[in-house]
Simulated assay, not measured.
Amino acid sequence: MATLQLFESTDDAHCESIGPRAFVLRGFALPHADALVAAIADIEARAAFRNMVTPGGFMMSVALTNCGEFGWTTDRRGYRYTREDPETGKPWPVMPDVFSTLASRAASATGFIGFNPDACLVNRYLPGSRLSLHQDRNERDFDAPIVSVSLGMSATFLFGGHTRSDRTAKIPLHHGDVVVWGGVDRLRFHGVMPLKDEPHSVLGSQRINFTFRKAG
């Protein structure tokens, strides 16, 4: 079975380039999938998944929660990071070691050395859930990459250009895949097509995606 230590450079056969500084690491998270799923359950027990409202008043089809020093939230006042869960007033759950270690090693494997995320947005997709094209612009540090981990049902990741109208690549993501993008690719538009109901053997009819960032 592959281990994290095997992914030491982008020359590895499991690494697919999708941009000058953007990569898919196929199966990178698989050795730790059980620990990751257990950690997600622990996070959910402290900060429940919820469907938030966008500034435009639309309910997101994707349910979310957070862990780490900062958590991403949205409501009619706008998109932002907070130190506390707005539903409980308590700090977001501490980022599990298995999360931060995976994020750091995935970043290093693609040339982003020293990545130390302080925010992790956890999204839960159900059949029909989608994520429209957007840029991640709420972070203070655009020099740090974004590391995104997929568990559960497969999805089609849309990876576009620096304007919303640019053509998007359709990239299949499966259980255990990790996407890393930064540098010249950091502000590219991206999203997820509506999820098909093709249940996963462990997680059933859901996809869990968690995305690491340097927010503060």
Rank of each mutant, 00 (worst) to 15 (best):
G111C: 04
T168M: 02
T101G: 11
D185K: 13
A107K: 01
Y125I: 05
L151T: 02
A63T: 08
R76T: 15
V184T: 14
P91F: 05
T65W: 05
F99C: 06
I113Y: 12
N123F: 08
F99N: 07
K170C: 06
V98H: 00
G114E: 06
D177E: 06
S61W: 00
V192G: 05
P93T: 04
F189S: 05
S150D: 04
S150I: 02
R105W: 08
R124F: 07
E69I: 11
S150N: 10
L64M: 15
P145W: 10
A103Q: 01
M60Y: 03
D118I: 09
V122T: 13
W92D: 09
M95K: 10
W92F: 13
A63W: 07
V192M: 12
L187Q: 15
F58A: 13
T74D: 10
S108F: 01
D118M: 03
D85I: 03
N66K: 00
P145K: 11
D143E: 14
L126Q: 11
L195G: 10
D197R: 09
W92G: 03
L126A: 13
H190F: 13
A119R: 00
K170I: 00
I171V: 15
L158F: 00
P96M: 01
S108D: 12
P194A: 08
L133M: 11
E69F: 06
H175S: 14
K90F: 03
A63H: 07
Y79I: 11
Y125G: 03
P93W: 07
G68D: 12
M59T: 15
R105A: 13
R137I: 14
R164A: 09
S61G: 04
P96K: 01
T74W: 04
R83E: 15
R105N: 11
D141V: 13
A155K: 13
T156M: 05
V98L: 00
V62Y: 10
N116Q: 09
E139P: 09
R186K: 10
A106R: 02
V98M: 01
G57L: 10
R130C: 12
T168D: 02
A103K: 00
D166A: 14
S148K: 08
R140L: 14
A109F: 00
V147E: 08
N138R: 01
A119T: 09
G128V: 08
L121T: 14
D185E: 10
V122P: 09
